[in-house]
Design a protein around this nucleic acid. Structure first.
Lengths: 114, 114
DNA sequence: TTCGCATATATGATTATCCGCATATTTAAA
DNA sequence: TTTAAATATGCGGATAATCATATATGCGAA
């Protein structure tokens, strides 16, 4: 059972909120994708993702050397809807991140990964 | 224009979240009502309300010696919906506060105020 | 004007949060 | 088994949030 204030503390940071909204939009992202999308250091991303994991907001799945994060399957419906609404109503907030994300997906066609 | 992360920082504290949800539910509440509803000190309530006021989440209206707080008229629709959804999906979170609130409204019939 | 109630704010101490840096862990490939 | 890539975490140090206490302000009544 997710306490509302715990949930909102998870959203109360720029790095975490952007990560969460990007994951809401893209279903699943790995750490290196978030690193380049947000243009932030690896430990910083990783630490915030760990917080979201501990709060049961995100779930992680390892696939080889990559760890993919997605919304936790047990995340309450109301919390999911809050994320979706925030995403839809704040299109521009994620624009620079999407820009960066699109660059790696192009690169990924030719090169190995992130 | 309200930045999403600013809004969620406003919700990321127990006192503020409960105050906001109570105000969402009751339309308008004064400081002394929130004090007894949350069973917290006057300066503590006042300081958190000031934060919400500065963030343009709440609006204040003075009526004699009382100051009534309500959701800011310019609060974006998405933010209003987030509050409403949180309220509906977390009935029990506010139960003790409502209990305390009902006690003063009974008292208010006979006595002066809060 | 003086008093009392409701509310706001200043101050200093405590605590929580966030960060960079270094290092550990896990996995795949050589 | 050594190496490199991806990810996680330990450890201070800096910054910000929160709190309790004391005090200030604004308003109505006497």
């Amino acid at each position: 059972m997710l306490c509302p204030v715990t949930f909102y503390k998870a959203l109360a940071d720029d790095t975490r909120l952007k990560s969460l909204l990007l994951i809401t939009e893209q279903q699943e992202l790995c750490v290196c994708e978030l690193m380049t999308a947000l243009e932030l250091s690896q430990p910083k991303i990783s630490r915030h993702l760990a917080q979201l994991r501990k709060a049961n907001v995100l779930a992680d799945r390892r696939s080889g050397q990559w760890v993919f994060y997605s919304l936790h399957p047990a995340l309450p419906t109301w919390a999911q809807q809050v994320l979706k609404q925030t995403l839809l109503a704040n299109e521009l907030y994620l624009a620079p991140c999407r820009q960066q994300l699109s660059l790696i997906s192009e690169r990924a066609v030719t090169q190995s990964c992130c």
